[in-house]
Amino acid sequence: MTGRRALLVASAAAAAALAAAVPSLGLPQYYISLLTQTWIFGIAAMSLDLLVGFTGLVSFAQAAFFGTSAYMIAVLATQYHLVAFWPALGIALGTTAALAALFGLLALRGEGVTFIIITLALNEIVWGLAYQWVSVSGGDNGIAGFIRPPVFGLDLSGTAAFYRFTLAALLVCLALLAAIVRSPFGLVLRGVRDRPRRMAALGYAVQAFRYAAFVIAAVFTGVAGVLFAYYNEFVGPVNLSLDTAVQVLIMVILGGVGTLLGPLAGAAVVVFVSNALSNLTQRWELILGAIYVAILLFARDGLVGIGHRVMRVLGAAARGAGPAARPVMSPPPGGRGEP
């Protein structure tokens, strides 16, 4: 197993290096900006996965956290002339965490469908505020007129520079989220997801763990919101609309719930397929919908599940084809419910 672990780490490092090299590969800027968008939504989708996949909470309030931190960046820059990256990031994430702390108190009074509906309603409140509070939010027209500040003295105004910065942020978030789900805290979350009553009987404060996960996920989503504000150099009500919340949830489900990397792949598919299709046909939303339905019908465990199946088939083929005495990697166990 250590061999497999080494292989994993090596291939992850190789993939990260490859991703970092993308801007020097001569790929057109447009694709680099789509990849940037993928990393940003990847962070949002992974953080939602912490809730959906590891804690068993389906939240529609993620768009509110995404949008709130994005709006904070825009408001701080345009109305308070606070453009320096780290203070702005701190205030944006702090505000988002405070909002999540409040929303968590309200939403976690319900379970299951009630929880979902409360998060949906809370999201609509924030959306309405952004839409109506024109003196602060610019209303329907949103806020433009702020630019990416330098970070660590690096100029991020170029597409390639911002791409690398976003990739670095993604890797940091991925590492942190992976550490969280593997920690004892993460194990408790899974227990809360699968057997909340048993966990309560064992003495775990189930609600407190859910609350903590809710706030942590909101802060990570806030990071994505900050990056998105800098990416577009624009924020508008659509960034915290229900559409955004649903889109991120689709990324999670498409990629594979409870896998962290799956939602990142889901983000890539949603970003690239929607943009590639919309160039080809006006009916792209129909086709995208068909793809979603197909994946949900035939690959309940998402893209990660498909990946596992492909590996299994390849593994079987390799076993059948060659007389190689080398032991073949055991097929990875499938997603949820594994022992």
Binding site: A12, A16, Y30, Y31, L261, L264, A265, V269, F272, N275
Partner: peptide, 21 residues
């Protein structure tokens, strides 16, 4: 292995998009 698949997938999809001119 699954890391590789998940990380490279976006690149493959990106490359299969419309050709740049």
């Amino acid at each position: 292995m699954r890391w590789v698949v998940a990380l490279i997938l976006p690149l493959l999809i990106g490359a299969s998009g419309p050709a740049w001119s």
